[in-house]
Design a protein around this nucleic acid. Structure first.
Lengths: 344, 344
DNA sequence: GTGAAAGCGCTAACAG
DNA sequence: CTGTTAGCGCTTTCAC
């Protein structure tokens, strides 16, 4: 693939993409004018703009974002760091982010920690090297290294999923309150032997915080708060397993508060299969408000977390800060809603 | 936030991150040596390496990937373009990609087209400006503009999800064959009034191709292949709706082949709720092999597509090409497996 | 194994 | 509204 035209003094690479300068030469203007054509078209006279436009098409120019970023010391890139892509919850948050950020002309750089704080720090370090305009990171718990890197970085950071005190801005919900709310609901419905069932609560510490709220509610009612923390597997399997385990070992149990809807639905489907009546034999509650819960019979009682909204709000906060607009609050509590089905 | 030390002649920005040159000065070596410390540590004498390492930590240096990329004209970034993030299928593929690419030190830039080919072309254009090492894009159908941009780009491209002739490399499965396989299964089970039900098949054209295979199988058996193509909503809702619609308008129908498991499960759950017996009253089949299908009673008969594997294979092909290793085939057919439940 | 010089392609800053 | 000049921070190339 040889070059037959314009480019003579190309040194380091062979066949090169045309550059801004090529376009400028073709259009008979200065390179900076072509630059303006892309970054602030309004600033050009119509005639000039047309000339440049023609030249751009003529030479088949593709902008080199890298060079622009180096010169301007900013990038229209927002790194997003989440613990996992296996969890729908993060996917939906990413969707909300994507939607708002892409509309504003920002690209999304994706990083996954696998719940490893060292990996998280490493990702942060890498991403800071991208001269990003800001950064989105899941959770309020980070290693000291991560915290320090982010604090020394003078760009906006939004921590998502949880509500509380963070590094900079944050958008999320109060998981303790959510756990408390569901436990209270179960108590109000008359259940007295309520178990909490999760999977790897050490890792999924937000589910652990929901358990804390749950426990507080039960203890306030003078009741114990037994916890079943299973090792990780496919979530629905864990739910089914938890149901069996608790029915066998704690026959008096009258309600299970699951850490999430996947587990709760796994239990619900297992109950259907085995003829266990829900909620007569045992009540079941979840967390997240996934669509599937509404398709169950009985419908799943759960707490709806506004996941996509978290993403949208986080993006909005970040953009506002990037643009130097006022933001109202640094911390946004998106809240949650208890959706009552017939399962509890 | 004022600066008290080293940096004097900083012009365009205020408080700057320390640069390679700062580290070099601190270590008493040339900048290029620090560069080598990061890119090819083996090339340095141990003593030198230690000096540099100390200096890096001393000044708190963070690499500037942008500058490096400009100078070297490559970036360890792989753009991934998918139509949607609402579909688990793409998420799992992304997971497979992420896993392999991150392990090889590549970052993933995420783009979403919303099934719009112009949007796709625009994304490609943007991403090409990133001097990416390669690119992953869903589907074999693109606009002429996209095709041209990608053909003129001299970096590897992997098209995923489908198997066939593409721009460069591709990894996926033959959707027509999958549709044919399921229809054949249904015929073998004795069903004769088989409907296909999907949602927005124009957009989700891969589901449309599965229908084509399905139709071929039925026509070969001398049977008609009625199609129900619903407008888009929540997939499970569409599934329930399709079941009701078909039961009402085509009472002789004895099997429904759904475009995906979400719809099939929506139908299955609706049937459970309404006392419709599956498969006695009507058989149900899906596509994808989502975990939930195995939790249904009866278990869903479906075709498992190796989604994460597609991502992994695509990443491997790309990396192999980037490294100049031989790749075997340009096109990889990952195949599929029919999982028989009791639903059909 | 290490260094000096010369850019990569673009944009900030300041003129005109 | 458009142009000139001088880098952004790193890596390539070629010496030593």
């Amino acid at each position: 693939m040889s070059r037959d035209d314009a480019h003579e003094k190309r040194s380091r690479k062979g066949a090169m993409q045309p550059t801004l300068t090529d376009v400028a030469r073709e259009a008979g203007v200065a390179p900076i004018t072509v630059s303006r054509y892309f970054n602030d078209p309004e600033a050009l006279r119509d005639a000039t703009r047309l000339k440049v436009e023609a030249a751009v098409n003529q030479v088949g120019y593709v902008r080199n974002m890298i060079a622009g970023s180096l010169a301007s010391a900013t990038t229209r890139v927002i790194p997003v760091i989440v613990p996992s892509l296996a969890n729908v919850v993060f996917i939906e948050v990413i969707r909300g982010l994507q939607q708002r950020l892409e509309a504003a002309g920002y690209q999304l750089l994706l990083g996954k920690t696998d719940y490893d704080l060292d990996r998280e720090a490493q990702l942060v370090r890498t991403f800071l090297g991208w001269s990003a305009s800001g950064l989105i990171i899941a959770g309020l718990r980070h290693s000291d290294e991560t915290r320090q890197l982010l604090e020394n970085w003078n760009q906006p950071v939004v921590e998502i999923m949880e509500y509380g005190d963070g590094l900079d801005m944050n958008v999320g919900l109060d998981h303790r309150a959510a756990g408390h709310a569901m436990a209270t609901h179960l108590l109000n419905r008359g259940y007295r032997h309520i178990h909490y069932a999760g999977a790897e609560l050490e890792r999924d510490y937000r589910a652990g915080e929901r358990f804390e709220g749950h426990r507080q509610a039960l203890e306030a009612a003078g009741l114990p708060a037994p916890l079943l923390d299973l090792p990780s597997r496919q979530q629905m399997d864990s739910g089914a397993e938890a149901l069996m385990h608790i029915r066998t070992h704690s026959p008096t149990c009258d309600a299970i508060h699951f850490a999430n809807d996947d587990m709760a639905c796994g239990a619900l489907l297992a109950a259907m299969r085995d003829g266990i009546r829900i909620p007569e034999d045992i009540a079941i509650a979840g967390f997240n408000g996934l669509p599937i819960g509404r398709h169950m019979t009985p419908r799943l009682t759960t707490i709806v977390s506004p996941r996509e909204l978290i993403g949208q709000r986080a993006a909005e906060q970040l953009l506002r800060r990037i643009r130097g607009e006022p933001l109202g609050e640094l911390s946004i509590n998106v809240g949650f809603t208890l959706h009552e089905g017939e399962s509890a």
